[in-house]
Design a protein around this nucleic acid. Structure first.
Lengths: 211, 211
DNA sequence: GTTGAGAGTCACTTTGCGGTGACTTACTGG
DNA sequence: CCAGTAAGTCACCGCAAAGTGACTCTCAAC
Protein backbone atom coordinates (compact mmCIF):
# COMPACT_ATOMS: atom_id res chain seq x y z
CA UNK A 1 0.00 0.00 0.00
CA UNK A 2 1.52 3.22 -1.15
CA UNK A 3 1.73 6.15 1.21
CA UNK A 4 -0.05 8.51 -1.17
CA UNK A 5 -3.15 6.36 -1.13
CA UNK A 6 -3.72 5.96 2.52
CA UNK A 7 -5.78 8.53 4.29
CA UNK A 8 -5.94 7.86 7.97
CA UNK A 9 -8.68 10.35 8.60
CA UNK A 10 -7.60 11.05 12.11
CA UNK A 11 -4.92 13.41 10.81
CA UNK A 12 -4.08 15.18 7.57
CA UNK A 13 -1.99 13.68 4.88
CA UNK A 14 1.49 14.51 6.11
CA UNK A 15 2.81 16.02 2.91
CA UNK A 16 4.74 19.18 3.52
CA UNK A 17 5.09 20.16 -0.10
CA UNK A 18 1.41 19.80 -0.77
CA UNK A 19 0.57 21.82 2.33
CA UNK A 20 2.88 24.60 1.22
CA UNK A 21 1.24 24.67 -2.18
CA UNK A 22 -2.17 24.68 -0.53
CA UNK A 23 -1.17 27.74 1.47
CA UNK A 24 0.25 29.59 -1.51
CA UNK A 25 -2.81 28.83 -3.60
CA UNK A 26 -5.14 29.84 -0.80
CA UNK A 27 -3.25 33.11 -0.40
CA UNK A 28 -3.67 33.88 -4.09
CA UNK A 29 -7.34 33.14 -4.00
CA UNK A 30 -7.90 35.06 -0.80
CA UNK A 31 -6.17 38.14 -2.18
CA UNK A 32 -7.96 37.86 -5.49
CA UNK A 33 -11.34 37.47 -3.84
CA UNK A 34 -11.13 39.81 -0.84
CA UNK A 35 -7.98 41.85 -1.31
CA UNK A 36 -4.84 42.27 0.74
CA UNK A 37 -6.73 43.64 3.70
CA UNK A 38 -8.28 40.24 4.27
CA UNK A 39 -4.92 38.46 4.28
CA UNK A 40 -4.26 37.34 7.85
CA UNK A 41 -2.93 34.14 9.33
CA UNK A 42 -6.32 33.07 10.62
CA UNK A 43 -8.19 33.75 7.41
CA UNK A 44 -5.44 32.18 5.32
CA UNK A 45 -5.29 29.03 7.43
CA UNK A 46 -9.04 28.67 7.27
CA UNK A 47 -9.05 29.23 3.49
CA UNK A 48 -6.35 26.59 3.02
CA UNK A 49 -7.95 24.16 5.46
CA UNK A 50 -4.71 23.98 7.37
CA UNK A 51 -3.54 24.94 10.83
CA UNK A 52 -2.07 28.39 11.03
CA UNK A 53 0.99 27.25 12.89
CA UNK A 54 2.23 25.70 9.67
CA UNK A 55 2.44 29.16 8.12
CA UNK A 56 5.08 29.98 10.69
CA UNK A 57 6.82 26.64 10.48
CA UNK A 58 7.10 26.53 6.70
CA UNK A 59 7.38 30.17 5.76
CA UNK A 60 8.40 31.94 8.92
CA UNK A 61 5.17 33.95 8.90
CA UNK A 62 3.07 35.82 6.42
CA UNK A 63 5.99 37.89 5.17
CA UNK A 64 7.92 34.82 4.10
CA UNK A 65 4.89 33.39 2.39
CA UNK A 66 4.28 36.64 0.54
CA UNK A 67 7.89 36.76 -0.51
CA UNK A 68 7.63 33.29 -1.97
CA UNK A 69 4.38 34.24 -3.66
CA UNK A 70 6.14 37.25 -5.14
CA UNK A 71 8.72 35.01 -6.75
CA UNK A 72 6.00 33.67 -8.98
CA UNK A 73 5.24 37.23 -10.03
CA UNK A 74 5.96 36.97 -13.71
CA UNK A 75 3.53 34.09 -13.64
CA UNK A 76 0.85 36.54 -12.54
CA UNK A 77 1.04 38.23 -15.90
CA UNK A 78 -0.35 35.06 -17.40
CA UNK A 79 0.75 33.77 -20.79
CA UNK A 80 1.79 37.22 -21.88
CA UNK A 81 5.44 36.24 -21.68
CA UNK A 82 4.88 33.57 -24.26
CA UNK A 83 4.28 36.24 -26.88
CA UNK A 84 6.69 36.01 -29.74
CA UNK A 85 8.94 38.89 -30.68
CA UNK A 86 7.97 40.38 -33.99
CA UNK A 87 9.33 43.24 -36.03
CA UNK A 88 7.10 46.31 -36.04
CA UNK A 89 6.90 48.83 -38.89
CA UNK A 90 7.15 51.74 -36.49
CA UNK A 91 7.50 52.58 -32.83
CA UNK A 92 3.87 53.63 -32.75
CA UNK A 93 2.74 50.21 -33.93
CA UNK A 94 4.93 48.57 -31.36
CA UNK A 95 3.60 50.78 -28.56
CA UNK A 96 0.02 50.19 -29.59
CA UNK A 97 0.32 46.42 -29.66
CA UNK A 98 2.35 46.03 -26.51
CA UNK A 99 0.27 48.43 -24.47
CA UNK A 100 -2.87 46.60 -25.39
CA UNK A 101 -1.33 43.22 -24.67
CA UNK A 102 -0.45 44.54 -21.27
CA UNK A 103 -3.94 45.91 -20.69
CA UNK A 104 -5.51 42.57 -21.52
CA UNK A 105 -3.10 40.64 -19.34
CA UNK A 106 -3.75 43.03 -16.47
CA UNK A 107 -7.50 42.75 -16.88
CA UNK A 108 -7.24 39.00 -16.56
CA UNK A 109 -4.96 38.95 -13.54
CA UNK A 110 -6.99 40.06 -10.57
CA UNK A 111 -4.03 39.22 -8.38
CA UNK A 112 -1.85 41.75 -10.14
CA UNK A 113 -4.62 44.32 -9.95
CA UNK A 114 -4.92 43.80 -6.22
CA UNK A 115 -1.20 44.29 -5.85
CA UNK A 116 -1.27 47.49 -7.91
CA UNK A 117 -4.13 48.86 -5.84
CA UNK A 118 -2.53 47.88 -2.58
CA UNK A 119 0.69 49.60 -3.54
CA UNK A 120 -1.30 52.82 -3.57
CA UNK A 121 -2.44 52.57 0.04
CA UNK A 122 0.04 50.44 1.92
CA UNK A 123 3.21 51.64 3.52
CA UNK A 124 4.39 48.13 4.25
CA UNK A 125 7.99 47.75 3.07
CA UNK A 126 7.19 44.22 1.92
CA UNK A 127 4.55 45.52 -0.45
CA UNK A 128 6.99 48.14 -1.60
CA UNK A 129 9.53 45.46 -2.42
CA UNK A 130 6.90 43.43 -4.23
CA UNK A 131 6.09 46.53 -6.22
CA UNK A 132 9.68 46.95 -7.26
CA UNK A 133 9.85 43.34 -8.36
CA UNK A 134 6.60 43.76 -10.28
CA UNK A 135 7.83 46.89 -11.96
CA UNK A 136 11.05 45.25 -13.00
CA UNK A 137 9.26 42.20 -14.38
CA UNK A 138 6.92 44.35 -16.42
CA UNK A 139 9.59 46.58 -17.89
CA UNK A 140 11.67 43.56 -18.83
CA UNK A 141 8.63 42.19 -20.55
CA UNK A 142 8.26 45.44 -22.45
CA UNK A 143 11.94 45.48 -23.35
CA UNK A 144 11.92 41.92 -24.63
CA UNK A 145 8.95 42.57 -26.86
CA UNK A 146 10.48 45.77 -28.16
CA UNK A 147 13.94 44.45 -28.86
CA UNK A 148 13.37 44.65 -32.60
CA UNK A 149 11.62 47.93 -33.11
CA UNK A 150 12.49 51.25 -34.70
CA UNK A 151 13.34 54.09 -32.32
CA UNK A 152 10.65 56.58 -31.34
CA UNK A 153 10.56 59.91 -33.19
CA UNK A 154 12.69 62.65 -31.67
CA UNK A 155 11.12 65.62 -29.96
CA UNK A 156 8.54 63.58 -28.10
CA UNK A 157 8.82 62.98 -24.37
CA UNK A 158 8.46 59.24 -24.71
CA UNK A 159 9.11 58.44 -21.07
CA UNK A 160 6.36 60.73 -19.88
CA UNK A 161 3.99 59.67 -22.64
CA UNK A 162 4.52 56.06 -21.66
CA UNK A 163 3.80 56.88 -18.04
CA UNK A 164 0.60 58.63 -19.06
CA UNK A 165 -0.57 55.76 -21.21
CA UNK A 166 0.29 53.01 -18.76
CA UNK A 167 -1.16 55.06 -15.95
CA UNK A 168 -4.47 55.43 -17.71
CA UNK A 169 -4.59 51.70 -18.43
CA UNK A 170 -3.82 50.93 -14.81
CA UNK A 171 -6.44 53.26 -13.51
CA UNK A 172 -9.20 52.14 -15.82
CA UNK A 173 -8.55 48.48 -15.13
CA UNK A 174 -8.45 49.07 -11.40
CA UNK A 175 -11.66 51.06 -11.44
CA UNK A 176 -13.29 48.38 -13.55
CA UNK A 177 -12.94 45.79 -10.81
CA UNK A 178 -13.52 48.13 -7.90
CA UNK A 179 -16.46 50.34 -8.76
CA UNK A 180 -17.07 49.32 -12.36
CA UNK A 181 -17.23 52.81 -13.77
CA UNK A 182 -15.06 55.89 -14.15
CA UNK A 183 -15.63 59.43 -15.36
CA UNK A 184 -19.07 58.49 -16.57
CA UNK A 185 -17.84 55.52 -18.56
CA UNK A 186 -19.25 52.07 -17.81
CA UNK A 187 -16.23 49.81 -17.61
CA UNK A 188 -18.29 46.67 -17.22
CA UNK A 189 -19.23 46.70 -20.89
CA UNK A 190 -16.96 44.92 -23.30
CA UNK A 191 -17.88 47.40 -26.02
CA UNK A 192 -16.37 50.20 -23.96
CA UNK A 193 -13.07 48.40 -23.86
CA UNK A 194 -13.07 48.22 -27.60
CA UNK A 195 -13.54 51.98 -27.71
CA UNK A 196 -10.75 52.37 -25.18
CA UNK A 197 -8.47 50.30 -27.38
CA UNK A 198 -9.34 52.44 -30.39
CA UNK A 199 -8.83 55.71 -28.57
CA UNK A 200 -5.50 54.57 -27.13
CA UNK A 201 -4.43 53.67 -30.63
CA UNK A 202 -5.49 57.08 -31.91
CA UNK A 203 -3.59 58.87 -29.17
CA UNK A 204 -0.47 56.83 -29.75
CA UNK A 205 -0.45 57.41 -33.48
CA UNK A 206 -1.33 61.08 -33.10
CA UNK A 207 1.72 61.55 -30.91
CA UNK A 208 4.20 59.04 -32.25
CA UNK A 209 3.65 58.79 -35.95
CA UNK A 210 5.91 61.13 -37.92
CA UNK A 211 3.84 63.94 -39.40
CA UNK B 1 -18.17 85.69 33.67
CA UNK B 2 -18.99 84.20 30.32
CA UNK B 3 -19.10 80.46 29.94
CA UNK B 4 -16.77 80.45 26.98
CA UNK B 5 -13.97 81.98 29.03
CA UNK B 6 -13.90 79.65 31.95
CA UNK B 7 -11.76 76.59 31.80
CA UNK B 8 -12.25 74.46 34.86
CA UNK B 9 -9.38 72.12 34.15
CA UNK B 10 -10.87 69.16 35.91
CA UNK B 11 -13.04 68.44 32.91
CA UNK B 12 -13.05 69.46 29.27
CA UNK B 13 -14.66 72.54 27.99
CA UNK B 14 -18.27 71.41 27.61
CA UNK B 15 -18.80 72.67 24.11
CA UNK B 16 -20.49 70.10 21.93
CA UNK B 17 -20.01 71.96 18.68
CA UNK B 18 -16.32 72.45 19.23
CA UNK B 19 -15.88 68.81 20.13
CA UNK B 20 -17.63 67.76 16.94
CA UNK B 21 -15.36 70.02 14.92
CA UNK B 22 -12.34 68.64 16.74
CA UNK B 23 -13.38 65.12 15.76
CA UNK B 24 -14.00 66.01 12.13
CA UNK B 25 -10.70 67.82 11.86
CA UNK B 26 -8.87 64.99 13.59
CA UNK B 27 -10.43 62.51 11.17
CA UNK B 28 -9.22 64.55 8.18
CA UNK B 29 -5.73 64.76 9.55
CA UNK B 30 -5.61 61.13 10.50
CA UNK B 31 -6.71 60.02 7.04
CA UNK B 32 -4.33 62.45 5.35
CA UNK B 33 -1.41 61.32 7.46
CA UNK B 34 -1.96 57.58 7.82
CA UNK B 35 -4.72 56.67 5.40
CA UNK B 36 -8.12 55.14 5.85
CA UNK B 37 -6.72 51.95 7.29
CA UNK B 38 -5.68 53.85 10.40
CA UNK B 39 -9.13 55.30 10.96
CA UNK B 40 -10.60 53.64 14.06
CA UNK B 41 -12.52 54.94 17.03
CA UNK B 42 -9.59 54.60 19.37
CA UNK B 43 -7.06 56.26 17.10
CA UNK B 44 -9.48 59.00 16.19
CA UNK B 45 -10.40 59.76 19.80
CA UNK B 46 -6.73 59.89 20.70
CA UNK B 47 -5.94 62.15 17.76
CA UNK B 48 -8.75 64.52 18.71
CA UNK B 49 -7.94 64.41 22.42
CA UNK B 50 -11.49 63.40 23.15
CA UNK B 51 -13.19 60.35 24.59
CA UNK B 52 -14.31 57.84 22.00
CA UNK B 53 -17.76 57.53 23.46
CA UNK B 54 -18.51 60.98 22.07
CA UNK B 55 -18.06 59.64 18.55
CA UNK B 56 -21.02 57.39 19.16
CA UNK B 57 -23.04 60.03 20.98
CA UNK B 58 -22.59 62.79 18.44
CA UNK B 59 -22.31 60.91 15.17
CA UNK B 60 -23.71 57.49 15.89
CA UNK B 61 -20.35 55.89 15.15
CA UNK B 62 -17.62 56.20 12.57
CA UNK B 63 -20.00 55.82 9.66
CA UNK B 64 -22.01 58.84 10.66
CA UNK B 65 -18.88 60.88 11.15
CA UNK B 66 -17.57 59.86 7.75
CA UNK B 67 -20.88 60.75 6.18
CA UNK B 68 -20.72 64.21 7.68
CA UNK B 69 -17.13 64.53 6.55
CA UNK B 70 -18.22 63.58 3.06
CA UNK B 71 -20.66 66.48 3.01
CA UNK B 72 -17.70 68.81 3.05
CA UNK B 73 -16.36 67.01 0.01
CA UNK B 74 -16.39 69.86 -2.46
CA UNK B 75 -14.33 71.67 0.13
CA UNK B 76 -11.66 69.02 -0.31
CA UNK B 77 -11.02 70.20 -3.82
CA UNK B 78 -9.64 73.35 -2.30
CA UNK B 79 -10.20 76.74 -3.85
CA UNK B 80 -10.74 75.19 -7.25
CA UNK B 81 -14.42 76.05 -7.16
CA UNK B 82 -13.55 79.71 -6.89
CA UNK B 83 -12.17 79.64 -10.40
CA UNK B 84 -13.95 82.03 -12.71
CA UNK B 85 -15.70 80.87 -15.83
CA UNK B 86 -13.93 82.12 -18.92
CA UNK B 87 -14.58 81.66 -22.59
CA UNK B 88 -12.14 79.36 -24.33
CA UNK B 89 -11.13 79.60 -27.98
CA UNK B 90 -11.59 75.87 -28.48
CA UNK B 91 -12.58 72.73 -26.69
CA UNK B 92 -8.96 71.64 -26.66
CA UNK B 93 -7.93 74.77 -24.79
CA UNK B 94 -10.70 74.26 -22.32
CA UNK B 95 -9.78 70.62 -21.74
CA UNK B 96 -6.13 71.48 -21.31
CA UNK B 97 -6.74 74.18 -18.73
CA UNK B 98 -9.39 72.39 -16.73
CA UNK B 99 -7.55 69.09 -16.66
CA UNK B 100 -4.46 70.76 -15.33
CA UNK B 101 -6.40 72.73 -12.76
CA UNK B 102 -7.82 69.47 -11.58
CA UNK B 103 -4.42 67.84 -11.47
CA UNK B 104 -3.02 70.62 -9.33
CA UNK B 105 -5.98 70.62 -6.97
CA UNK B 106 -5.69 66.86 -6.61
CA UNK B 107 -1.97 67.03 -5.94
CA UNK B 108 -2.62 69.45 -3.11
CA UNK B 109 -5.47 67.55 -1.49
CA UNK B 110 -3.98 64.51 0.15
CA UNK B 111 -7.40 63.80 1.61
CA UNK B 112 -8.92 63.43 -1.82
CA UNK B 113 -6.03 61.27 -2.94
CA UNK B 114 -6.55 58.99 0.02
CA UNK B 115 -10.21 58.68 -0.86
CA UNK B 116 -9.43 57.88 -4.49
CA UNK B 117 -6.93 55.23 -3.49
CA UNK B 118 -9.23 53.73 -0.90
CA UNK B 119 -12.03 53.46 -3.42
CA UNK B 120 -9.79 51.07 -5.33
CA UNK B 121 -9.38 48.61 -2.48
CA UNK B 122 -12.37 48.95 -0.20
CA UNK B 123 -15.67 47.19 -0.64
CA UNK B 124 -17.29 49.22 2.11
CA UNK B 125 -20.62 50.61 0.82
CA UNK B 126 -19.94 53.83 2.72
CA UNK B 127 -16.78 54.41 0.73
CA UNK B 128 -18.67 53.57 -2.40
CA UNK B 129 -21.26 56.22 -1.57
CA UNK B 130 -18.52 58.72 -0.82
CA UNK B 131 -17.03 57.92 -4.18
CA UNK B 132 -20.30 58.65 -5.92
CA UNK B 133 -20.60 61.98 -4.12
CA UNK B 134 -17.02 62.80 -5.06
CA UNK B 135 -17.57 61.89 -8.67
CA UNK B 136 -20.68 64.04 -8.86
CA UNK B 137 -18.94 67.00 -7.26
CA UNK B 138 -16.05 66.78 -9.69
CA UNK B 139 -18.17 66.46 -12.80
CA UNK B 140 -20.29 69.41 -11.73
CA UNK B 141 -17.10 71.36 -11.28
CA UNK B 142 -16.06 70.40 -14.80
CA UNK B 143 -19.47 71.31 -16.18
CA UNK B 144 -19.50 74.69 -14.50
CA UNK B 145 -16.10 75.59 -15.87
CA UNK B 146 -17.03 74.40 -19.32
CA UNK B 147 -20.40 76.10 -19.55
CA UNK B 148 -19.07 78.57 -22.10
CA UNK B 149 -16.98 76.49 -24.39
CA UNK B 150 -17.18 75.39 -27.99
CA UNK B 151 -18.25 71.78 -28.59
CA UNK B 152 -15.59 69.13 -29.17
CA UNK B 153 -14.84 68.11 -32.75
CA UNK B 154 -16.98 65.33 -34.13
CA UNK B 155 -15.54 61.88 -34.74
CA UNK B 156 -13.58 61.78 -31.52
CA UNK B 157 -14.65 59.56 -28.64
CA UNK B 158 -14.55 62.39 -26.14
CA UNK B 159 -15.99 60.42 -23.23
CA UNK B 160 -13.35 57.75 -23.50
CA UNK B 161 -10.57 60.25 -24.15
CA UNK B 162 -11.58 62.11 -21.02
CA UNK B 163 -11.54 58.92 -19.01
CA UNK B 164 -8.07 58.14 -20.31
CA UNK B 165 -6.73 61.59 -19.49
CA UNK B 166 -8.30 61.84 -16.05
CA UNK B 167 -7.28 58.29 -15.32
CA UNK B 168 -3.66 59.00 -16.10
CA UNK B 169 -3.73 62.10 -13.92
CA UNK B 170 -5.27 60.14 -11.07
CA UNK B 171 -2.77 57.36 -11.32
CA UNK B 172 0.29 59.54 -11.54
CA UNK B 173 -0.79 61.68 -8.60
CA UNK B 174 -1.59 58.62 -6.52
CA UNK B 175 1.72 57.00 -7.33
CA UNK B 176 3.51 60.22 -6.51
CA UNK B 177 2.39 60.13 -2.91
CA UNK B 178 2.57 56.39 -2.47
CA UNK B 179 5.79 55.19 -4.02
CA UNK B 180 7.05 58.40 -5.61
CA UNK B 181 7.75 56.94 -9.02
CA UNK B 182 6.00 55.25 -11.88
CA UNK B 183 7.09 53.58 -15.10
CA UNK B 184 10.62 54.80 -14.56
CA UNK B 185 9.56 58.40 -14.05
CA UNK B 186 10.50 60.15 -10.82
CA UNK B 187 7.31 61.85 -9.68
CA UNK B 188 8.98 63.59 -6.78
CA UNK B 189 10.65 66.10 -9.08
CA UNK B 190 8.76 69.24 -9.90
CA UNK B 191 10.41 69.36 -13.31
CA UNK B 192 8.76 66.08 -14.21
CA UNK B 193 5.36 67.55 -13.53
CA UNK B 194 6.09 70.32 -15.94
CA UNK B 195 6.91 67.72 -18.56
CA UNK B 196 3.71 65.90 -17.71
CA UNK B 197 1.76 69.10 -18.19
CA UNK B 198 3.37 69.65 -21.56
CA UNK B 199 2.79 66.13 -22.76
CA UNK B 200 -0.83 66.19 -21.64
CA UNK B 201 -1.26 69.39 -23.59
CA UNK B 202 0.32 67.84 -26.65
CA UNK B 203 -1.91 64.80 -26.47
CA UNK B 204 -5.03 66.90 -26.03
CA UNK B 205 -4.26 69.14 -28.97
CA UNK B 206 -3.16 66.25 -31.12
CA UNK B 207 -6.54 64.61 -30.60
CA UNK B 208 -8.90 67.52 -30.20
CA UNK B 209 -7.65 70.31 -32.41
CA UNK B 210 -9.26 70.24 -35.84
CA UNK B 211 -6.74 69.18 -38.45
C1' DG C 1 -31.07 76.30 46.49
C1' DT C 2 -32.77 72.25 43.80
C1' DT C 3 -33.00 69.64 39.99
C1' DG C 4 -32.71 67.96 35.45
C1' DA C 5 -30.19 67.76 31.14
C1' DG C 6 -26.29 67.45 28.77
C1' DA C 7 -20.99 67.22 28.37
C1' DG C 8 -17.21 64.50 29.61
C1' DT C 9 -14.79 60.44 32.13
C1' DC C 10 -13.80 55.80 33.25
C1' DA C 11 -14.08 50.94 33.63
C1' DC C 12 -15.65 47.18 31.57
C1' DT C 13 -17.06 43.33 28.18
C1' DT C 14 -16.54 41.07 24.08
C1' DT C 15 -14.31 39.70 20.10
C1' DG C 16 -10.95 38.73 16.95
C1' DC C 17 -6.25 39.05 15.92
C1' DG C 18 -1.11 37.38 15.71
C1' DG C 19 1.73 34.31 17.76
C1' DT C 20 3.48 30.22 20.73
C1' DG C 21 4.07 25.89 23.66
C1' DA C 22 2.97 21.37 24.31
C1' DC C 23 0.96 17.60 22.65
C1' DT C 24 -0.21 13.45 19.37
C1' DT C 25 0.47 10.84 15.32
C1' DA C 26 2.93 8.78 11.65
C1' DC C 27 6.73 7.73 8.93
C1' DT C 28 11.92 6.49 8.50
C1' DG C 29 16.61 5.20 9.25
C1' DG C 30 19.30 2.35 11.82
C1' DC D 1 11.77 -3.23 16.58
C1' DC D 2 12.84 1.02 18.37
C1' DA D 3 13.96 5.77 18.55
C1' DG D 4 14.11 10.10 16.45
C1' DT D 5 12.21 13.36 13.48
C1' DA D 6 8.81 15.75 11.23
C1' DA D 7 3.64 16.72 10.17
C1' DG D 8 -0.38 18.06 12.14
C1' DT D 9 -3.64 19.36 16.23
C1' DC D 10 -5.13 21.95 20.08
C1' DA D 11 -5.30 25.14 23.73
C1' DC D 12 -3.67 28.99 25.19
C1' DC D 13 -1.48 33.91 25.84
C1' DG D 14 -1.27 38.88 25.22
C1' DC D 15 -3.16 42.52 22.95
C1' DA D 16 -5.81 45.93 20.67
C1' DA D 17 -9.98 46.65 18.71
C1' DA D 18 -15.20 48.17 18.89
C1' DG D 19 -18.69 49.19 21.65
C1' DT D 20 -21.47 50.05 26.22
C1' DG D 21 -23.05 51.17 31.12
C1' DA D 22 -22.65 53.86 34.86
C1' DC D 23 -20.62 57.47 36.79
C1' DT D 24 -19.27 62.67 37.74
C1' DC D 25 -19.30 67.36 36.77
C1' DT D 26 -21.27 71.77 35.19
C1' DC D 27 -24.63 74.81 33.96
C1' DA D 28 -29.24 76.75 33.49
C1' DA D 29 -34.08 76.94 34.36
C1' DC D 30 -37.20 77.34 37.89
Amino acid sequence: MKMEEMQQGSQRQRDRHQTEQRLLKAASELIARDGFQALGVNALAKEAGVDKVLIYRYFGGLEGLMEQLGNQLELWLGDGHKAEIVEYPSYAHFAEVVLWRYAEALRKSILLQRLLAWELVSQDPLIHRLGIARSRAVSQWFLRLGSKTPPPPAGVDVAVLNALLIGSVHHLVLRATSSGDFAGVDLKLEAIWERIRLELSEVIHARLSPP
